[in-house]
């Protein structure tokens, strides 16, 4: 554990808490892509199956349970409790276009051809693109509430901090994982446009609005 990874994990937890609080306090999930939230739930379910097979540390196990529980809660709030506020019409990204290529890629490029390892690889690939329905929703409506922008910034920062973690681990521990690094770079790049808008608009107190 190094400072970059810990900061990344904190940023990830922070993002999830912001999202849950936003939905709970406003009693609404307007502006949030349910499809991205379903993809994240699939990511955690397929990655954290190793809760039952491999013990790394109490910290890791607690975080895994936390991510599973909070993503389940988010999907529940969006599709059951506050279903009426869910923005179906704008959330029209076809997730099979992400699920199928990630599954095929995981079957072909993985560290080891076992069920657990292919599922882990699938979850890494899927996580890298799982935000696309959310970014698509923002681009369709042309704007995002500030709280949604803060959520996206914290979520994007998490993988960017992990990139620093991987650089650190390569230099200090000679440890690297090409699949995680490649997917992490893709994931971070997808947020770049958003980061730019966040820094130039939201941090200056303006609403995130895309040029018409």
């Amino acid at each position: 554990m190094n400072i970059f990874r810990f900061a990344g994990d904190l940023s990830h937890v922070f993002a999830i808490i912001i999202l849950l609080l936003k939905i709970w306090k406003t009693r609404s999930c307007a502006g949030i892509s349910g499809k991205s939230q379903i993809l994240f739930a699939v990511v955690y379910l397929t990655r954290y199956l190793d809760l039952f097979t491999t013990y790394v540390s109490l910290y890791n196990s607690v975080m895994k349970v936390l991510f599973l529980a909070t993503s389940g809660a988010t999907v529940y709030l969006m599709y059951v409790k506050f279903k009426a506020t869910y923005d179906h019409n704008h959330d029209s990204f076809r997730i099979e276009f992400l699920l199928v290529p990630c599954a095929l890629l995981a079957l072909v490029i993985n560290h080891e051809f076992t069920v657990m390892e292919v599922l882990w690889t699938f979850s890494i690939y899927l996580e890298s693109v799982a935000i696309l329905p959310q970014l698509f929703l923002v681009s369709r409506t042309g704007e995002a509430e500030s709280i949604t922008s803060h959520y996206l910034f914290a979520l994007g920062s998490y993988r960017a901090l992990y990139l620093l973690n991987w650089v650190y681990r390569y230099m200090v521990e000679s440890h690297y994982d090409l699949i995680a690094i490649f997917a992490g770079v893709v994931q971070t790049v997808l947020y770049c446009d958003f980061f730019y808008l966040y820094i130039t608009k939201v941090l200056k107190g303006k609403k995130l609005q895309l040029p018409a």
């Binding site: 190793d50 790394v56 540390s57 890791n60 390892e117 882990w120 440890h175 995680a180």
Partner: peptide
Amino acid sequence: DKDQSEHDEL
């Protein structure tokens, strides 16, 4: 070098 399929990150 660690085994690449040992995942100790989240």
